[in-house]
Nucleic acid binder design. Structure first.
Lengths: 230, 230
DNA sequence: CGCGGCTTTGATGTTCATCAAGTAAAGTGG
DNA sequence: CCACTTTACTTGATGAACATCAAAGCCGCG
């Protein structure tokens, strides 16, 4: 954790997303108790198993949502960008976090006491309805992505994830992969070695240019074909 | 579809689950527009792609939640029993269903016009909060189960699903498998042949007794061991 | 500098999908 | 009710996809 301060809600994108139907006074009251924290790459924002006492929202940066089992093996559930979840899931269902969240790059989150949010939801149904919509969309997307990945094999999964980063996260055919090869493997449910091997193949086949984490998509159509069925 | 009627909400389990914080009058008003439908085994309750206009809840029976891709291949997302979802997911996020739902055995659902429910949520935050809790829990469970299955291999996945039916659905070590071998395969992301082969192995190893769909778990500890790591 | 973690490649074996072929069960029309 | 078709189930043989093991280079960090 880097930096702690009160934030100004008027300029925050979060406001439009969540507080559309909330009285300005109430937004103001929330704002006063709001805290921002900035995490460096690699730092853990949420630890699975911890008690949920806050409503946490990603303002900037990039995070991974993951789980670690008793043998220390991790599985990545999703990549989260601003305007995406963070602690949005689980928050209303249970007492403790089901997932861990950590920063893939420097990330700033906004933290609100959970009871403040549930109180607000309890007496402002339109606000609650908005949160419900957001929650539904988030978990639907995660599940659909799981299904999408599950029906492909190695090469298709890798192409899929590369395209996801290119299109959904960075909006560019050139970007720095924000995850390690090992994390890539944990995301698609394959081994690190096979992720590396396949990336090398894609380079040899002139689909990608790769230097370490830096990736450039050279043959987008072919990559899409492989993602579809390859 | 079999049978259409108005239902009496006072005896319905749904009432406690969803309408805990709702005025009796409002519950009554909902009740008047409520419709029950009974579906036979194999009938489709919800079709992915259809417009969402109703809030649908499973009163009795057993259903599968699934998706079919453009090549006609299906993937099963979850098995739903009463007090579980049905149309709970997607409902608030989008205009059309993302998943299909069909009956694995004779099932009765309760149908409420969606706008009635969202109107109620919009002016009754406690009700909305309750629905949020339920939604969170449902999608959390689906995602956690996906992760659980993904980290196992064939034998472990099969053991896992058998145990799930035994413990979560039927509460018995003897039960009739409510899905075909093909559906079993679609649920765990493997081929039909390998599901059959593995079930046959489990029979030879005297873990299970199998006659067609009828299953008896003979060696529970061993099955659990295989599910954990096998 | 040396240690540990990440990356890379190759060789090997296991796991799983695919193909084929046959039996059983279940629905369909005369 | 029986021939007929279709769908589900089953087993074996084969090859493809993938994990595992091993070895070495690289990089950051104390």
């Amino acid at each position: 954790m880097d930096h702690v301060s009160l934030c100004e809600c008027d300029n925050c994108d979060l406001k439009d997303l969540f507080f559309g139907f909330v009285d300005p006074e109430e937004v103001d009251s929330m704002c006063k108790t709001r805290v921002e924290k900035t995490y460096q790459k690699g730092e853990e924002i949420i630890m699975a198993g911890n008690l949920i006492s806050d409503f946490i929202y990603l303002k900037s940066g990039l995070v991974k949502l993951f789980r670690t089992d008793s043998h220390g093996k991790s599985q990545i559930i999703a990549i989260g960008k601003p305007m995406d979840f963070v602690s949005l899931m689980s928050v209303f269902s249970d007492e403790e976090y089901k997932y861990s969240v950590s920063a893939l790059e420097q990330s700033t989150v906004c933290i609100i006491e959970l009871s403040k949010v549930t109180d607000l939801a309890a007496h402002n149904g339109k606000f609650a309805l908005g949160v419900m919509r957001k929650m539904s969309r988030i978990s639907d997307n995660i599940i659909l992505d799981f299904l999408e990945i599950r029906k492909k094999q190695l090469r298709g999964r890798i192409a899929h994830v590369i395209l996801m980063f290119s299109k959904d996260v960075f909006n560019s055919s050139v970007f720095d992969l924000p995850i390690s090869r090992k994390e890539f493997a944990e995301f698609i449910g394959m081994t690190t070695e096979n992720v590396i091997r396949t990336l090398s193949e894609f380079r040899k086949d002139k689909l990608l240019r790769i230097y370490g984490k830096s990736i450039e998509i050279v043959n987008m159509e072919m990559l899409e074909r492989i993602s579809e069925h390859g």
